[in-house]
Computed example of a mutant assay.
Amino acid sequence: MRKTRFGTIAAMAAIGAMALTSCGGSGNEADGDKIRIGIKFDQPGLGFKDGDNYTGFDVDVAKYVANELGYPEDKIEFVSAPSANRETMLQNNQVDMIFATYSITDERNKVIDFAGPYFVAGQDLLVASDSDIDGPEALNGKNLCSVTGSTSAQKVKDKYAEGTNLQELPGYAECVTQMSGGTIDAVTTDDIILAGLAAQPAYKGKFKVVGKPFSEEKYGVGLPDGTDKCKAINEAITKMIDSGDWQKALDKNTEGTGYTPNSKTNPPKLADTCA
């Protein structure tokens, strides 16, 4: 089983931890140690770095889970986890866990472990608030934007509207800027990513998520293969959901977009997914 840094306390630190416990401190906190959590740094509403501040739904869930594992906010080190690097970062012990719109798939499960899911997203459309586009079938003759290398826009063209005009840009923020200028009719990716973009102060009230998802993506917590922390993380996620803090975090990060996640899949009901 791969060793992880979860709960690791050096011998000298253990003495301090015992002293804290005897004085009423938390016996779970790893004194003097930090936990490294991979997030996106460039996804508003989910994982976003602004100076020394980290915001977004993924970040809020990560902070809650870390605290339940004994790592308060000042013990967390957030690390940028680009999509293409996530498995490698876990395999090379660069991070302890990853919250970064990380879809659980059988292929990824061959090399890493997952806890969760903590959210179930679906591919959807972001359009202008006054747009009459009500789903992917309405995109014939329209300009649809997604990021370079993504399969989201092509999926719409292949399955729903062959006459869609595809536009690829380096990032979703660029897509939304173009839509604000009127050259793009819709943007497509996971619904919660779209809601996070639309919730930005510069765009509030200008865009809406259509609300008819046409795929299902289970966002999990990426973990090193063989970890023993999956069950504890699932328990923390369940506690966050049951306490109402999960809903508060979601509302805070999607406010003003009209976005409501699929009630059939959210909040997610965690099965015994831990091996």
Rank of each mutant, 00 (worst) to 15 (best):
F99C: 03
D132H: 12
V156Q: 09
D190V: 10
A198D: 02
G181V: 04
K63Y: 01
N85W: 07
L126E: 06
L197D: 05
D52R: 14
G244A: 05
Y118A: 05
K229E: 14
K63A: 08
M1K: 15
E29P: 02
I9A: 03
K204G: 00
R36Q: 12
V221A: 09
S83I: 09
S146L: 01
Y71M: 14
L20W: 03
G51P: 09
A271F: 06
K248H: 02
F57M: 13
F57L: 11
D96K: 07
A66F: 06
G38T: 13
A153K: 09
I184G: 05
V65F: 04
D190A: 12
T183F: 04
Q200Y: 08
A30M: 13
E174D: 07
G56R: 06
D134E: 13
R2K: 15
L144Q: 13
P261C: 06
E137Q: 15
Y219H: 14
F99E: 04
G205F: 06
S80H: 08
A202E: 14
V127A: 05
K206L: 13
F207A: 05
M240N: 04
V59L: 07
T21S: 09
Y71P: 12
T101S: 11
I192F: 00
D33M: 15
G122R: 05
M1N: 13
D60G: 05
I76Q: 02
G149T: 10
M97I: 10
N234T: 11
Y172S: 12
K34N: 13
Q91A: 04
S26H: 00
L194W: 07
C175S: 05
F6W: 05
Y64A: 15
L144I: 15
L125I: 07
T254E: 02
E217N: 14
K142E: 10
T8S: 09
V111S: 08
L250H: 04
I15D: 08
I184C: 06
K264T: 11
V59E: 00
K206F: 04
F114A: 02
E216H: 02
D124F: 04
F207N: 06
I112N: 01
I39H: 03
P117W: 02
G220Q: 06
C175I: 04
S215V: 09
K142H: 06
Y259K: 01
K264V: 03
P268V: 03
K212Y: 04
A198Y: 01
I37M: 03
V156G: 10
L197V: 14
E174C: 00
G51V: 12
G32C: 01
M18E: 08
I233E: 02
A11W: 10
V79H: 01
M97V: 06
Q200K: 15
M89K: 02
G181R: 15
E162G: 07
G226Q: 12
G258Q: 06
S263I: 05
D96V: 10
K110S: 00
L223E: 01
L169W: 03
M240R: 01
I192C: 00
V176R: 12
S152M: 13
E107A: 09
T265K: 08
A10G: 07
T8L: 14
Y54V: 15
S146N: 08
A198T: 08
M18K: 13
I193R: 14
